[in-house]
């Protein structure tokens, strides 16, 4: 039989690629997380993690750091996104671009700049490790929070606000009853975009001389010690958190913003 080209066949290389580099590594991680160094199945890796005050402390510290960072990002990003969407400037597309541009600059170089400024202000970075980490992460992740909220507010049907006004609502009331609820999907994707990196991006802490571990640093230290089982165990815990998060938020709005896309 003669070979016939069909468009479906184009999916085969990508499907194989996903199988080898996405699905297979996950299987390997589950396998390593659930076996000991002698290869026998065991739950010891997890028991060690959840019974050691040090690693539990790391989990708690990551959660608190991520929570504070997410709140600070939200408190800054919401007014900015609101101003971008409602200031009715002619140059608003340029302004949006200005808020996206930092994503295109390498984050380690941006952190270098921030580090120099913080050193100038504080003298010694070691005095305020937690504060510096929150500032660093906010500086790094802020665009991920601004963009989804802005996109949501931009799409908001402005006639609803006029209707609220006609029906006698004041500015504050129409914001609380109309704008805020309708912008929630953007807020939720923003939170999803910031919370997880804030638990894992240990480079921010390293560069700002905060020696406390977060979940990401644990993978780094297991990796440095060639402890594949420990590293896999942490990865699996993080994957579980990601699953819960994805199911809770169920939105794919924010993810596109990661590549600095304007669409």
């Amino acid at each position: 039989m003669k070979y016939r080209f069909s468009r479906k066949q184009l999916a085969i290389p990508y499907a194989l690629f996903l199988l080898v580099f996405v699905a297979a590594p996950l299987v390997v991680i589950v396998y390593y997380a659930l076996t000991g160094s002698d290869g026998t199945p065991t739950a010891d890796n997890f028991i060690r993690f959840f019974s050691d005050p040090n690693t539990l402390g790391t989990l708690l510290y990551s959660l608190i750091l991520a929570l504070v960072t997410t709140c600070v990002c939200l408190l800054i990003a919401y007014p900015v996104a609101y101003a971008l969407a409602f200031s009715r400037l002619k140059a608003s597309s340029v302004l949006v671009m200005l808020f996206i541009m930092p994503m295109w600059i390498n984050f380690t170089l941006r952190l270098t700049a921030l580090k120099e400024i913080l050193t100038l202000i504080e003298g010694n970075l070691a005095f305020h490790p937690f504060l510096n980490s929150v500032i660093g992460m906010t500086y790094d992740f802020l665009p991920f929070m601004i963009l989804p909220i802005y996109n949501q507010l931009e799409r908001l049907d402005k006639s609803l606000l006029e209707a609220a006004k006609d029906l006698g609502a004041g500015d504050a009331q129409s914001f609380i009853k109309v704008t805020l609820p309708l912008s929630m999907p953007g807020v939720v994707s923003g939170i999803a975009m910031v919370f997880l990196p804030a638990m894992t991006n240990y480079v921010v802490l390293d560069m700002l001389y905060n020696s406390t571990y977060i979940m990401g640093s644990l993978i780094g230290s297991y990796f440095a010690a060639y402890d594949w089982h420990g590293g896999s165990m942490i990865s699996l815990i993080l994957l579980a958190l990601i699953c819960i998060f994805t199911l809770l938020t169920k939105s794919d709005e924010g993810q596109k913003t990661r590549g600095g896309s304007l669409v």
């Binding site: 590594p25 991680i29 999803a192 894992t200 240990y202 993978i219 896999s232 990865s235 993080l238 994957l239």
Partner: peptide, 17 residues
């Protein structure tokens, strides 16, 4: 999966494989 996953986990998982 790689889109929502933490980069640290993506990097580690490809490395381990």
């Amino acid at each position: 999966v790689p889109v929502v996953n933490a980069d640290v986990v993506t990097g580690f998982s490809v490395c381990i494989l």
